[in-house]
């Protein structure tokens, strides 16, 4: 029995060693020393996730270490972001989709956040802006947002599918109602895909969503885009006029998709990441994929992105205050 025990002990020792050393082989030499974890605080299959995977695919061309997309969904993005905030600031854990609702909208609605989305992370680069595009059913008589508003002004009830209450799309709809004085009933769904499906079935008059969410329906003619709520035209839908062009003074930043790292990450690491992401954004194949998934490339480097985030957060704060949205 004691021999048996010795053998098992030996076996244990060897196995532990094997297990331990299989993950070894990187030290703190030159950044990046090991694969980089790209934390997506949303579920797999969503538009942020698709973007992350598109970046991951192109990233390997420009960096010696691969990226690994890890989804940590929950609490509208707060859980994943908190994980990155708490992780080691060595540039091996990146936050993806920085600038989404949980960074720009939620702080102005929610009393407490477990971190400060502007101060506890350092912006690295902006990749894309997911604007809000307002659509109507392809079978309807409307061609522009103005038509819809004129129809609503006659006393018809405008119902709108939005992805979630007090989200980016809901805010746009409420802002349109406020600025035009025509009431819009927003009907929240759980997520953009569900909202788009309901509009496709003709159960509502208008709907809003990010271009990547509604692209299949725009292509098939089931949806007709009537306006983009951005201060300029969206790169992925260059033919769709903005709401401002139609005389409706509504423009938001939609949902911004950038990359960030925890506070305290060395500046040279941030610089490296920002420069490499720039190469990714200029990559031909990357641009091609971005066009098919309906996401515009809107690169900004670390400095400009940081300044942009401050402005975008203030814009949202002002708008939410003006609309009086409270939970």
């Amino acid at each position: 029995m004691s021999r048996m025990r010795r053998v098992t002990l030996l076996l244990t020792g060897v196995s532990v060693a094997v297990l331990v050393f299989s993950g070894w082989g990187f030290s703190a030499e030159k950044y990046p020393a090991k694969p980089i974890q790209l934390i997506v605080p949303y579920a797999p299959g969503g538009s942020s996730d698709v973007l992350a995977r598109t970046v991951e695919k192109a990233w390997t061309k420009y960096s010696p270490q691969p990226m690994i997309v890890v989804n940590k969904a929950g609490a509208g993005g707060v859980l994943g972001t908190e994980y990155v905030v708490r992780s080691k600031p060595d540039g091996h854990t990146l936050l993806f989709a920085y600038g989404s609702g949980c960074d720009l909208v939620m702080p102005h609605l929610q009393q407490k956040m477990p971190y400060d989305p502007l101060k506890d992370v350092v912006p690295v680069a902006r990749i894309s802006i997911h604007s809000v595009v307002v659509s109507v059913s392809g079978k309807s008589q409307f061609n522009t947002m103005k038509d819809v508003i004129a129809w609503g002004a006659k006393g018809n009830k405008i119902t709108s599918a939005v992805s979630t209450a007090a989200g980016a799309v809901d805010i746009v709809m409420r802002a349109i109602a406020k600025r035009t004085g025509v009431p819009i009933t927003t009907v929240p769904f759980s997520g953009g895909a569900e909202a788009a499906t309901a509009l496709a079935g003709g159960h509502l008059v208008i709907g809003g969503g990010h271009p990547s969410e509604v692209l299949p329906h725009l292509k098939s003619g089931r949806f007709r885009p009537v306006g983009v709520a951005l201060d300029r035209r969206d790169g992925s839908l260059p033919n769709v006029p903005t709401l401002k062009e139609q005389g409706i003074d509504v423009a938001t930043w939609g949902s911004v998709k950038g990359v960030a790292v925890p506070k305290g990450t060395p500046p040279e690491v941030v610089e490296y990441l920002s420069a490499t992401l720039k190469k990714v954004c200029e990559d031909g194949e990357f641009k091609k994929t971005m066009a098919t998934i309906g996401q515009p490339v809107d690169y900004l480097d670390q400095k400009d992105f940081a300044a942009f985030m401050l402005k975008a957060s203030k814009d949202y704060a002002d708008l939410i205050k003006e609309l009086g949205i409270k939970l």
């Binding site: 025990r5 196995s15 297990l19």
Partner: peptide
């Protein structure tokens, strides 16, 4: 103990 250790090592290796 002998059985404990072998079960532990084998299952950990299998999981890994």
């Amino acid at each position: 103990w002998a059985k404990t250790l072998s079960i532990a090592v084998l299952s950990t290796l299998a999981m890994y």
